[in-house]
Design a binder for these strands. Structure first.
Lengths: 258, 258
DNA sequence: ACCCATTTCGCGCTTCCA
DNA sequence: TGGAAGCGCGAAATGGGT
């Protein structure tokens, strides 16, 4: 299925039994260098305009991505600039995002490959590192699971934590506000009580009563001594009333009714 | 559906004189050297003999060929190297460890290269990903700094977070307890008020008063009509008192004192 | 223009699974 | 046992100095 572009056709094979690279190793005995000079041998490969079918997971996926970043790049404005955003760092972010998207924290790597439009190989680079840091866990076949709970982006934890702290604070002062209210309510209750107690003194004295002329009335009022605190209805203070009674008593007294 | 080219049998192919991967380039001009190491390249943990010359940084470092991963491998338990530990996942762990070691969280990548005995290239794989996840931050030249605080261990964050949540909870129900207290206090206040209102009806009627024999007393009591709600002192209900007054009135009445 | 740290990219081997 | 998954590895491209 996958056309695999022009495939250059190697014309050089290196004698087996040996690897290449590796200049500095410490075991120099027996190493040979073969220098190969190449002339032009152009790489076929022109442009790979393949409209990437989703096929092959591992194989070469897209060919290109960013347009060449020709030096000048007249337009050079928007954030499309080369190299920078093209890889791992950014890819990792995208990957993480994908991962956050999928609830149950499981992600299918092939899906990721499709969505992110990258070679599977790159995904492995990411998953390997993330696994090394225990943020991820390899699931069966082609999938990984997000471990390491929420704590992912420090930013997020920070946000979450500070949100929690804020709520705590608000709860705390809501609490103290309530404390205040309670205090006030109890104060009112006390004041009410005191008020009642004060009125206790607004009564007729024994002498006052004695000034009342008729015996029965005196007796009656005496029994009314129990009626101590008096509450008025419509009249804000009882003082005038008491005064009235005193006045009455005096009248009786002056008329010798006692 | 991955075609994956028929990979000829050749066991060692070297894209000769031409870059193999990287098809894109257009400038194949210069020559390249290919050093071939032959022999067995032993598994043993090559020494990093890079005693001098900075060369090492980028260049190929170790060459480790993994030992065969023999099927059975009786002991097959402990550190059976093979491919497994040779890479990224493990390397990442080691790297993180190094990072945790260095206080001030800064690590020199070249140091890491030496210590971990790996190619710089591998370190980049790690730093790129970690940076993508915001656990790391690139410092100037060859260094990175550990960001993302302690939160690395999910355990810790979890603990901190749950502690916070617990406090929040306790605050919340402390609050609701206070709410309850307030409610009760207000209830009491209301009850007190209602109580007062009820007592409003415990008064002597106009007729009651008219039954009182003597004019002055009648006048006096009439003026006392204002004293409507009556509060008792020591006596829980005023009913008996009212009854007493009625009784008194009746007595007067029966004696024709009216 | 050259140096070099960094990063891109993908070949080909290893390992897994049906 | 064959194909797919997984990934070591390093050449080469890139871009920032200077």
């Amino acid at each position: 299925p996958h056309p695999r572009p022009p495939q250059p056709v190697y014309e050089n094979v290196v004698p087996p039994a040996r690897r290449r690279g590796r200049p500095k190793s410490k075991a120099p005995e027996n190493e040979q260098k073969i220098e190969i000079e190449n002339g032009q041998s152009e790489v076929g490969k022109g442009e790979i305009s393949q409209g990437h079918h989703k096929e092959s997971t591992t194989g070469p996926t897209k060919g290109i991505k960013r347009a060449r970043k020709p030096h000048g790049s007249i337009e050079g404005d928007a954030a499309n600039n080369c190299r920078y955003d093209s890889s791992l760092g950014l890819l990792t972010k995208k990957f993480i995002n994908l991962l956050k998207g999928a609830e149950d924290g499981t992600l299918d790597l092939n899906k990721a490959v499709e969505i992110l439009e990258v070679q599977k190989r790159r995904i492995y680079d990411i998953t390997n590192v993330l696994e090394g840091v225990d943020l991820i866990e390899k699931g069966l076949k082609n999938t990984i699971r997000w471990k390491g709970f929420d704590m992912l982006l420090p930013k997020e934890v920070e946000l979450q934590t500070s949100a929690l702290k804020e709520e705590l604070d608000s709860s705390h002062d809501k609490e103290s506000r309530l404390d205040e209210e309670i205090r006030e309510a109890q104060e009112k209750l006390l004041a009410l009580k005191l008020n009642k107690d004060k009125k206790k003194w607004l009564y007729l004295s024994k002498e006052d009563i004695c000034k009342i002329p008729h015996l029965q009335v005196r007796k009656f009022l005496a029994s009314c001594l129990f009626l101590l605190p008096v509450i008025t209805k419509g009249i804000s203070t009882i003082a005038p009333l008491i005064a009235g009674i005193h006045s009455y008593c005096n009248t009786c007294s002056s008329r010798n009714l006692c």
